[in-house]
Simulated assay, not measured.
Amino acid sequence: MPFTIATWNINSVRLRADLVTRLMRDEAPDILCLQECKCPLEKLPTEIFAEAGYGHIIARGQKGYNGVAILSKMPIEDIGDRDFADLGHARHISGKLENGVVIHNFYVPAGGDKPDREINVKFGQKLDYLTAMRDWFRDHRPERAILVGDLNIAPREDDVWNHKALLKIVSHTPIEVAHLADVQDSGRWVDVTRADIPEGRLYSWWSYRSPDWDAADKGRRLDHIWATPDIAGAAHGSRILRDVRGWEKPSDHAPVFATFDL
């Protein structure tokens, strides 16, 4: 039975609960994975989401920062989380569907402003987090798994508005791209979005700092959907809902979708 999964950095789920329910109503993904929820678990508006048809919810929360959640129409079992790089952050959660498919939802650290771990602790944390992800998936080779989330890296030249201009900007530096490639290789993950849309510029994030984000279109593809090779061939229908970035009081990210015939 096919199901559609979406991933969206909501940038405060309490502030934008109405946008979440609007997406649920308009697009009706079977599973919606959120990042940067920015609230403790007890503050998550679970009743609102359950009323919208998403009664199966697993989440990890943190006051004012981070936080991840999986909201599902389908039964899903909470199979835990990992504190990669021992940061003490709510950045990962995983669940298992009744068909055995495991879903990992990640919010990788943004990394601060300076791409130098000697002067920027946050950048070092980002690299360490990615290294820990690499090691985990190398030692626990995933099968029948989907990985989604805000990975905070735009890996390809056409995943950013200007490759040369962003080579020294956090999210597109060669060292970050290499670390993300190591994570992908360690789990043999397939980039589902780019398998479906192999050519052309593709973005999922536009800065709040741009006075006219749509016209300037200085975007980056920071949000991803990956799958293991045994199920990647069942994926199709990938899309990024750019228009959502233009909703009233939006997140700076747009949701990314894919459908799996499993």
Rank of each mutant, 00 (worst) to 15 (best):
R156Q: 08
E157K: 11
V160K: 02
V160A: 01
N162I: 08
H163D: 14
L166N: 15
L166C: 13
L167N: 14
L167E: 15
K168E: 13
P174N: 06
E176K: 00
V177T: 12
A178V: 03
H179G: 13
L180C: 10
V183G: 10
V183R: 11
V183E: 14
S186R: 15
G187W: 13
G187L: 10
V192H: 10
T193D: 01
R194W: 08
R194L: 08
R194D: 05
I197D: 02
P198V: 12
R201K: 14
R201H: 12
Y203F: 15
Y203Q: 04
Y203C: 03
S204E: 02
W205T: 03
W205D: 01
W206A: 01
W206F: 04
S207V: 07
Y208L: 06
R209Y: 11
R209V: 02
D212G: 10
W213M: 13
A215C: 06
A215K: 15
A215W: 01
D217G: 02
R220H: 08
R221E: 03
L222G: 14
D223L: 09
P229L: 04
D230N: 06
D230R: 03
I231D: 06
A232S: 14
G233Y: 05
G233S: 10
A235N: 08
H236W: 13
H236R: 15
R239A: 15
I240H: 10
